[in-house]
Structure formats: C-alpha cells, structure tokens
C-alpha cells in the first residue's frame, strides 16, 4: 500500500486552500501509519472541528469527525471500549487548546494510548482568521486587528507538564523529521503529542507579512532551533530570541498509560 491508498479518492478534491500546510502534515501522518504496518480496519482517525479536523474525512479508515474541541473525549471512549483499535487524532490549535483545552490536559494526564497530530496554524482557519491561543504576541487576525496582546500557549510545554509520554514539535518544512516524530509517537505506548506548525496563507500569512506561501515556510526553516541546542544555549546563559521555534523531541518516557492493547 502507498499513502494514496489511505485516501478516499471519491471525496477529492479537498477543501484546503492553495498553499495550505495541512496536506503536507496529513501526508507525513499517513506515511508514518503506513510504516507502522497498521491495517485499515484496525485504525481510526478522529477529529474535532476546523480545517485541520476535516482531514479524517479524506482518509479511508473508520473516522469520527466530532464537535469543536471534543475529539480527545470521543477518542478516549473509542479506545477504552476497544483497545485493539489504533487511534490518531487530528486537531487544530483552537480546537485543541482553546475550546478543547481541558480535554487535552486530561488526555495527557490519563496518558491514553493514542497519537495526536496538532496542525498549528496560529489562527482560526475555518472561521476566517480570528485569533487563537497560539497566535503570537503582536500577531494580526480579524479579532486582534491591533496585534494580539495575549501571550501564546506553548502546546508542547503543556503536554509535557500534563503527563504525555511522547511530545515533539516540527513544522511543515521539516517533512522527514515530522514523519519520524509521528512514527515515534505511533510506536510509543501512551499519549503521544506531535505539534506541527503549518502555514495558512489565506488567513495567517496574508495578514502577517508572509506575502508568498514560500515566505512562511522559509521562516519555519530559518527560525527553528533544536531543543538540545536551546538547552545548551540556556546553560551558557545565552538568550534565545523570542521568535524562535523550539523543535524536536521534548519528552519520551514511560509513565503508566491507559487503554494500551492487552
């Protein structure tokens, strides 16, 4: 099977805008699932509401497209009722960290055995570009027309503190690293959280100085700093510029987990 075999061909074309980063991350995820050797009938994709949450609708396994923010609660029910199923959750930054924030930290705490792929475009894509909990300070959106005045969430820090077994961050530029991280997440028992920054040319890029799609991808490339390097810099007392994206693996551990296949 190739990644394409995991797609519902009869549902294409998809709704994503030209230049959207979601397709890249969906590809990376399907590639990782493929490498796991998972069978279609034992794999379930779950999502909430948002552009990113439309992903399961294009994948040919059983899929549950739920309500805004609640994907992890639905997924918890599926996994506990049938631990034989492999579960991957697609979610957006608003879906996961705003309306779904409470479910997120509790899923991490329970360390329920599933993998979350968060497509973080730092904006509400589906509803037309409102501010999200990950919109950076100063970021422009339709609801932060003078620049966001709120600090943003560090989703990986949150997942780590709340108890997830595996936590990593990459971007849509880092296709190979991202695929590798998702694969590690799928392999790892317990709650795996992989965040990928994605460009949203329509709603984020356009308003935030990324004139071309490539500009934001270029930014992801030039503004990424590895977790290990950041740690070394901190040790030396060096400043990490606030606009840098910390990427790599934040945690890989073996806390007791829920719903692991017997």
């Amino acid at each position: 099977m190739s990644e394409e075999d995991w797609l519902r061909q009869d549902r294409l074309p998809h709704i994503f805008c030209a230049g959207c980063g979601n397709g890249t991350v969906i590809n990376c995820t399907l590639s990782a699932v493929e490498q796991m050797g998972w069978k279609r009938q034992e794999t379930v994709f779950v999502s909430g509401i948002g552009c990113s949450s439309r992903a399961p609708g294009y994948i040919s396994t059983d899929s549950l497209h739920t309500t805004h923010g609640r994907a992890l609660a639905f997924a918890t029910g599926i996994k506990l009722a049938n631990p034989q199923l492999n579960i991957v959750v697609f979610t957006g930054d608003g879906d996961l960290a705003a309306i779904g924030g409470n479910h997120f930290i509790h899923a991490c705490r329970r360390n329920i055995d599933l993998t979350v792929v968060c497509l973080n475009n730092m904006i509400y894509g589906m509803t037309g570009g409102q501010g999200s909990p990950t919109t950076p300070m100063g970021g422009l959106s339709t609801t932060t027309p003078y620049g966001s005045g709120e600090p943003a969430f560090d989703l990986c820090g949150l997942a780590t503190a709340a108890g997830a077994n595996y936590v990593a961050r990459w971007t849509s530029y880092h296709v190979r690293e991202l695929t590798r991280a998702i694969l590690t997440g799928l392999e790892n028992p317990g709650f795996s959280f992989v965040e990928s920054l994605v460009q949203c040319p329509t709603n984020y890029g356009r308003r935030n100085r990324f004139k071309q799609v490539a500009d934001q991808i270029e930014y992801f490339k030039s503004h990424t700093i590895l977790v290990e390097k950041a740690a070394r810099m901190r040790e030396k007392g060096e400043m990490i510029p606030p606009d840098m994206i910390l990427a790599g693996e934040f945690v890989r551990r073996n806390r007791p987990a829920l719903g692991v296949r017997p």
């Binding site: 779950v46 059983d62 549950l64 639905f74 029910g77 996994k79 506990l80 009722a81 479910h103």
Partner: peptide, 8 residues
C-alpha cells in the same frame, strides 16, 4: 463524548 465514541 466518550459514550458516543464507545458506542461506535
């Protein structure tokens, strides 16, 4: 939500 997931 969990109940609905389990039911599926």
């Amino acid at each position: 939500a969990a109940v609905i997931g389990a039911s599926w």
